[in-house]
Nucleic acid binder design. Structure first.
Lengths: 334, 334
DNA sequence: GTGAAAGCGCTAACAA
DNA sequence: TTGTTAGCGCTTTCAC
């Protein structure tokens, strides 16, 4: 990499002259500016990012801590973050907590050494289960803002971007009830995390509001054989006529299992699930889904963080942005 | 963030004393070391990463350029990279090229300003289609090593990690032939990229080797309705008894379509596809898959890059590592 | 055993 | 109009 020093030497001017010329300072003479710019162009000069970071005490880099990159929703949020960040001239350093509290803490600490200007994260399952939030507070106290999305720690004061999980499941369940479904089962593979619980509550509320309907919740644990559990459900309960799934795996497996059991979807049974467009394009019939607009969530998170980074001093109140889900009706419901 | 300067001031010693004490230099007196370390601990001192990077002209950061984060395989490789990098004390800056040559170039250029010590990347579709490699060469010439994985540019001199695409499809096709299948269709959604072409060739070779068998390739384009195309295939060709898919979408859709057409899988028809474990767990019957060991690929790529970064000067020959796929037989084949 | 000073690449206040 | 200097945080050589 060429440096200002080398350019200066070759041009027989001082370093600061070169710097100013490149930054279009009014101070420098026209001809000098031209000479400098030409040489810089020739050598493809780029200001050293590290030096700038040190000078400005700003890295223009965001730390993103994701619990699981193989989760389609989270990957999509990351995509949204990356795009928005790039638009504003920020890079992202990605860490994967792997749902582990320890790794989450480490990543936070490691990047809080001047590597990043702030964080965007979704809380690891383990952290949520243990209700551990001190590491977040500590980071914020150090002057590094955090924006949480999806799985947030409600008792940490910071910007948040969340989904209307409760309402989404409530409304989806109601739409199943309106179809005339009586035996609606809620299946969830994510009961340990905040959003999973919210979704269950939304379902329960809708069911409770309708006399004669009884809640029926099937919780899948990580170690369970997902397919087996759902097959067993169908075997034991022949009268199930609707499924609402809190996660895409449960939704897809439930739909495919129903089909393989000879049930007609959606005639005999409806299926709705939190899932992506791609999930719904892979099933036959196409799955009716609750879409979370992951990319939008990512973009909002990035935007909130960047605003906060650039507003240090001006103590703005923390914001919680709710990104509404959409119920996209496909062929797995009436 | 606390700096050495602040610690030095508070302790009434010089900055260099503090620095040496923290780095366990023999020069410094025992008691001083103790005092320094205690205060550093108290203030939770961490050496500023940016300053170190500037000093050492090394960032301990890897630039990763991924064409598409929503592709499960690529996401998994990223996971592998992140894990290996973290193990070696490296961070990763992730850029998503979105299959665009322009974005790929930009990311490369942007990060070549001192932000990273090297790159790991998989070539964007557009770059492969246009056979554009100059930006890679330029980056390498600038002294920033590149490791390519999966979709590689064969005529760029750099380390590579690839999959045995040709052999994998060849062998998988042979295993279908050995099952007694006669009408084996190859479906691909990735015919524009290098690996897609290799996979097709492997299939063709196996078919050509067996008299009486005829190649039948169905190419899906990005803008096509994936489900419709595959449905039409089954409608027009009632005698298809095996599918081999170059990508997971095609595999999953083919399997589900076959089932919905009343075909018994695997009695009437076998399905094999390049796919992940999770894909195969979502279908009924479970999909027989060609596994690419994405995490291993990521880990190898990171390892290769880090070795090369740390070996500057010692001009090691470029390596191409082939990570063998495994054919995991599930219930969609005999 | 401790400190001063230089230097990594850059910007900006100040001097000339 | 151009140059000198200091400083961002750190390490390291050299002096004391």
């Amino acid at each position: 990499m060429v440096t200002l020093k080398q350019l200066a030497k070759e041009l027989n001017v001082s370093i600061s002259t070169v710097s100013k010329a490149l930054n279009n300072s009014e101070e420098i003479g026209e001809s000098t500016v031209k000479r400098v710019k030409e040489l810089a162009e020739l050598y493809n000069y780029r200001p050293n990012k590290v030096a700038l970071s040190l000078k400005n005490n700003k890295t223009r880099t965001i730390g993103v801590i994701i619990p699981n990159i193989l989760n389609r929703f989270l990957a999509k949020v990351l995509f949204g973050i990356e795009r928005e960040a790039t638009k504003h001239g920020y890079n992202i350093i990605t860490c994967i907590s792997n749902e582990s509290l320890e790794k989450e803490k480490e990543s936070l600490q490691l990047l809080a050494n001047g590597s990043v200007d702030g964080f965007i994260l979704s809380v690891a399952q383990e952290s949520q289960m243990n209700n551990e939030v001190e590491h977040f507070r500590k980071t914020i106290k150090q002057g590094l803002p955090i924006v949480m999305f999806d799985r947030v720690a409600h008792d940490v004061l910071c910007d948040k971007v969340i989904v209307d999980d409760f309402d989404a499941t409530y409304n989806a369940t109601k739409s199943l009830i309106n179809e005339g479904r009586k035996h609606i089962v809620f299946i969830s593979n994510i009961n340990d995390i905040s959003v999973g619980k919210l979704r269950e509550r939304g379902y329960n509320k809708a069911m409770l509001e309708n006399v004669g309907l009884e809640s029926f919740v099937l919780k899948i644990k990580k170690k369970d054989d997902h397919q087996k559990k759902i097959k067993a459900l169908f075997k034991k309960n022949k009268n199930i006529d609707a499924i609402i799934a809190a996660d895409s795996s449960s939704a897809v497996i439930a739909l495919n299992t129903a089909v393989s059991f000879g049930l007609k979807v959606p005639k005999d049974i409806s299926v709705i699930g939190f899932a992506s467009k791609s999930d719904s394009n892979h099933t036959l019939p196409k799955l009716t889904t609750i879409r979370q607009h992951a990319k939008v969530i990512g973009a909002h998170a990035a935007e909130l963080l960047i605003k906060r980074i650039q507003n240090t001093g001006a103590e703005v109140d923390v914001k919680t942005k709710i990104v509404k889900t959409s119920l996209v009706k496909n062929k797995s419901t009436l």
